[in-house]
Structure formats: C-alpha cells, structure tokens
Amino acid sequence: MTTEAVLVVGAALFGIGVFGALSQQSFVMLMMGIELMINGSLLVLVAMWARAASGSPDGQMLAIVFMTVMAVEMSLGFALITGVYRVRRADITEKLRKLKG
C-alpha cells in the first residue's frame, strides 16, 4: 500500500462525488455526492498524516473537523429538504426555479 495508491483512491472518490453533486436532481442524491467528496478528501488527509506528518496528532484533529463538517452538512441538508418540501412539495432541484417565496 503505497501513499500514491491511497491518493489515487481518494481522488477517484472525489471525482465520483463531483459527478454526483453536479448531475443529480434529487436533493438527497446531491448530498450523497458532497459526502463522497468530503470522504475522498478525508482519505487523502489521513494518508498524508500517516505517511508524512511523523504522527503529529494535529492531522487527526483536522480529520475530526472534517467529520464535524460532514455531520453539519447532513443535518442541515435534511432540515432544508424538510422545509422545502413543506412549503413547495419539491423533491428535485428543477422544482425550485425561484428561491424567494
């Protein structure tokens, strides 16, 4: 397991996430794309920590911040989905041509 191989896997996950976030119409699928992007960056971050940071715990702290960002993104995303559905009965992005009510 070379560091480069892990970086390539992380880049692949990020690329899949970019595709998903740009192409999906459903709100939840779009969030899945964003999650995959964060996951790819997390993988690369941990790889660099394990191989190039001489085990300094700061790298793991940054990874914990990444995970917080994931949790925040998910919960606020679900809340927005609930709010938008309540008002507009919308479940795909195309139904939200106007953001202002």
Partner: peptide, 28 residues
Amino acid sequence: TAVVAGVVAFLAIAGVGLSGEVPSRPAP
C-alpha cells in the same frame, strides 16, 4: 458536463498526488 467535471477533478487531483514527492515520515 458532470462526467467531464468528475473525470477532470479525478485526473487533476491524482496528477498532483502522483507528481508531488511525499516526504516519508511515517506515524508511530
């Protein structure tokens, strides 16, 4: 567009990862 963007993102990041030199200071 999305496929192109995804592939470009993958190639760019993988390219940076492969071309750069990773210092070897492994964790304990």
